[in-house]
Amino acid sequence: MYFRQIFLISCLSAIAASVGFSIYQWYLVNPIIFSAELYEIAEPIDSGMLEQLEPWEPEDGIERSVYTLLANFLMALAYSLILASAMVFRGSSSTLKGIAWGMAAYLSVFVAPGLGLPPEIPGMDAAELAQRQNWWLLTVSLTVIGLAVLAFSSRYYKGAGLILIILPHLIGAPTAEIHSFNHPDPGTIAVLTELWHQFVLQTSIANALLWFIIGASTGFLNHKFIDAVPSLQSSKFTKA
């Protein structure tokens, strides 16, 4: 029963969150990605190589937007499933508690890794992908554990939570030798840098919105469809 309830709750919450997120993204985030791509494509391509088979990608326009919508939904569903399970595991839920969980998740999944690896627009030089993914995973995991220790453990262990949160930043994020744009024209670099600053700001707001909706709706729905359902709580009554 719990699995089914959590799956349905997460689907509803993911619909709400991905619609909100996608609208914001459509108007304020995607235009920045598309502008940056214009410069990326305008770059001369090193083609001493033979033309390679281009892997499939969605056509610009409706097809690309549909795939982005679908990916947004799946991402929101994944986040909701994890958040809803964690909330039920910890006990009862409410809309307010959900918002608190959502904000903790925003800190763990967006803010903490973003301090070392800020959101990037296409065309930026960065360190090797695998290294960045590893640091991202390490930072998110340690921040989640650290925040959980801060929130739920006894006073004596809270220092350990802080240490876990700070640790990945002491290790340091993998950075490229030159963390900038690989473009010959200084004017273009100035434009791209401005676009990048806009992108960091807009994605910070968009992800806060995403987590706010996921948190609030998951908290509300958990309360309504899990806490308030007597048959799910039957184990407590039969034990007593």
């Binding site: 997120f21 993204q25 985030v29 995607n30 990605i33 892997p55 499939w56 990608e57 969605p58 690309r64 795939y67 982005t68 679908l70 990916a71 947004n72 991402m75 999944v109 967006f110 890794p113 973003g114 690896l117 800020p118 959101p119 990037e120 627009i121 296409p122 960065a126 992908l129 960045r132 993914q133 991202w136 994605t203 968009a206 992800n207 995403l210």
Partner: peptide, 13 residues
């Protein structure tokens, strides 16, 4: 490629 814009928007590497 399918999830490209989503990955950028949620700041995944």
């Amino acid at each position: 490629n399918a999830a490209h814009d989503t990955r950028h928007s949620v700041a995944f590497p």
